[in-house]
Design a protein around this nucleic acid. Structure first.
Length: 558
RNA sequence: UGGGGGUUCGUCUAACGGUAGGACAACUGACUCUGGAUCAGUAUGUAGGGGUUCGAAUCCUCUACCCCCAGCCA
């Protein structure tokens, strides 16, 4: 498992104190996803914290599905979630649990609370319960069914289990305090009637526990010492504590941290699902999605994501992390791990007039200057090449170091070439750039020591492979997509240019056998990976992230 | 105008009564066969007011602002 969380944070400090004080002697955490959707990078933060904290103290982490609501959950998600956690680099050994494993125990505990006079069956309708609950500023009032006898409660609850009542007819409630300032303590619902088939227990149950009655006790059963969750559950902690205290069972400690937010990004299962369902993106694993499967397909490495989560830190401040930090982490990781390769996205023909017609040279190129062990490769060179359209300008501005009439540049790993003239079509569009090369500069060095300012990449026309290249950009064009004016939604902030498909790109022949998931740096362009759709005869690459481009910055000011 | 949290460079995050530090972003410059990478440097911050103290981001107090809670969701 990856090393993570060498940095300190308030949770780590709290755990240290607990160990020191003897409140706990070991550290055991859990990651509790609900199997109702795909994991996104917000979950990655929780995963890294849950597993990372346990690991920091030599403890364990359980995977536990929080599957208490059969109408929303599906086994489809169970496997996807496991795959994503493993991909991220974490392992729960054989400790794969389900809240539904504990349904019988939870039921018994519910009866115990009834026997203790701490729970009652309520016949109020959902609407009435809402009314009786009061508001944020007014206390609630007791249900007329609140003072039923233990025997009656027990009888009714057993009949709820037996399926004698329709959905919504009754609920089991904790008897706490209808006047509490904390609305969660105003006799919260423990069980509801749901005649629905559960993905694991099938039709065995028609009553299902609520989150609040399931989570803490599940933690307790598993011996979880530190139950780490997001700030939303802070107001539920008194209830969490209340249940385990009343039941007299092992009492884990719940600690809350702020969830991850990223600029130009939406991290809401509901919104992500909306985009998938409305085909605004091509599925959960669309490379533009912040889902782990989407990011994986995009070419992100799990190392980069873990590094990002680590750099973001753990605190209680509600914060929005700049997406540029994520991009930095991806570049940082890919820079040292991805092999370099030459690819021309928008081809322009470059003809070397003084190069022998049928000659082909194999030029040596370095695979990764950051990693000697990556070795070298040979790239074929010939008279007719493709270069990037952007790398030629007929009337260049100042500080443009690339090819232009009369100017000399270096073809990477190749020769110095000097532009002599261009050929245009009737519309004035440049068809060919002609140049001459200096045979003395093979490999990219000149014996007379003269310097060229620019180095451009190229692909030999007769050896080039055709490829489709998908350019991805941020999905939204505003930093806070969900913050919209009246009458608009986050969908109005979708970036119409988040996907650009380039169809006749030219890539060097070494890419012929690349496999889905392979990552490369296309020199001077960015990091790319071979897409799932790619085949040997029809190559497809995704742009993971562009390289930092200081020319773009210079040119935008001139 | 109930309850619970929060507020430190543009953005995240440290500092636990003793020089406000790091990362990303930005801007200089150096170097470079990727206008990449790397290196060096610059600027920017304790929400506000009182108080305690030799000394306060840190302790006390008042104020302001932000977030969460009124699902038979999690």
């Amino acid at each position: 498992m990856p090393e993570i969380y060498e940095n300190t944070n308030f949770i780590k400090e709290a755990i240290e104190e607990d160990l020191k004080s003897g409140r706990f002697t070991t550290v055991h955490t859990r990651f509790p996803p609900e199997p109702n959707g795909y994991l996104h990078i917000g979950h990655a933060k929780a995963i890294c914290i849950d597993f990372g904290m346990a690991q920091a103290f030599g403890g364990k982490t359980n995977l536990r599905y929080d599957d208490t609501n059969p109408v929303k959950e599906d086994t489809e998600y169970v496997d996807a979630i496991k795959e994503d956690i493993r991909w991220l680099g974490f392992d729960w050994d054989n400790r794969e649990y389900y809240a539904s494993d504990y349904f019988e125990q939870l039921y018994q505990w519910a009866e115990q609370l009834i026997l203790q006079g701490d729970a009652y069956v309520d016949d109020l309708s959902p609407e009435e319960i809402r009314q009786y609950r009061g508001t944020l500023t007014e206390p609630g009032k007791n249900s007329p069914y609140r003072d039923r006898s233990v025997d009656e409660n027990l009888d009714l609850f057993r009949r709820m289990r037996n399926g004698e009542f329709p959905d919504g007819a009754r609920v089991l409630r904790a008897k706490i305090d209808m006047t509490s300032g904390n609305i969660n303590m105003r006799d919260p619902v423990m069980y509801r009637i749901l005649h629905a088939s559960h993905h694991r227990t099938g039709d065995k149950w028609c009553i299902y526990p609520m989150y609040d009655f399931a989570h803490g006790q599940s933690d307790s059963i598993e011996g979880i010492t530190h139950s780490l969750c997001d700030l939303a559950y802070e107001a539920h902690r008194p209830l969490y504590d209340w249940f385990v205290e009343k039941l007299g069972i092992f009492h884990p400690r719940q600690l809350e941290f702020s969830r991850l937010n990223i600029s130009y990004t939406i991290l809401s299962k509901r919104f992500l699902k909306l985009m998938v369902d409305n085909k605004l993106v091509n599925g959960w694993d669309d490379p533009r999605m912040p889902t782990l499967c989407g990011m994986r397909r995009r070419g992100f490495t799990s190392e980069a994501i873990r590094d990002f989560i680590d750099k973001v830190g753990v605190a209680k401040n509600e914060s929005v992390v700049d997406i540029s930090l994520l991009e930095h982490c991806v570049r940082d990781n890919l820079n040292v791990s991805a092999n370099r390769v030459m690819a021309v996205l928008n081809p322009l023909k470059l003809i070397i007039d003084n190069y022998p017609e049928d000659q082909v040279e194999q030029l040596e190129a370095i695979n990764n200057p950051e990693d000697d062990s990556a070795g070298k490769r040979l790239v074929p060179f010939s008279k007719v090449l493709f270069i990037e359209k952007d790398d030629f300008m007929e009337n260049p501005p100042k500080k443009y170091f690339r090819l232009s009439p009369g100017n000399e540049v270096r073809l990477r790993y190749g020769y110095y070439v000097k532009c002599t003239h261009i050929v245009k079509d009737d519309n004035g569009e440049i068809l060919e750039v002609h140049c001459t090369y200096d045979p003395e500069t093979r490999g990219g060095y000149s014996p007379d020591g003269r310097k060229v300012k620019g180095t451009i990449h190229w692909v030999s026309a007769q050896h080039a492979l055709e490829a489709e290249i998908r350019l991805y950009d941020r999905l939204f064009n505003t930093p806070d997509p969900d913050n919209t004016e009246e009458g608009k939604t986050f969908l109005d902030n979708l970036n119409p240019d988040s996907l650009t498909i380039l169809n006749s790109c030219k890539v060097e022949p070494s890419l012929k056998n690349s496999l889905s998931g392979d990552r490369f740096q296309f020199e001077r362009q960015g990091y790319f990976c071979t897409d799932l759709d790619s085949t040997q005869n029809s190559l497809v690459f995704n742009r993971t992230v562009s390289l930092k481009d200081s020319w773009a910055k210079i040119s935008q000011f001139s």
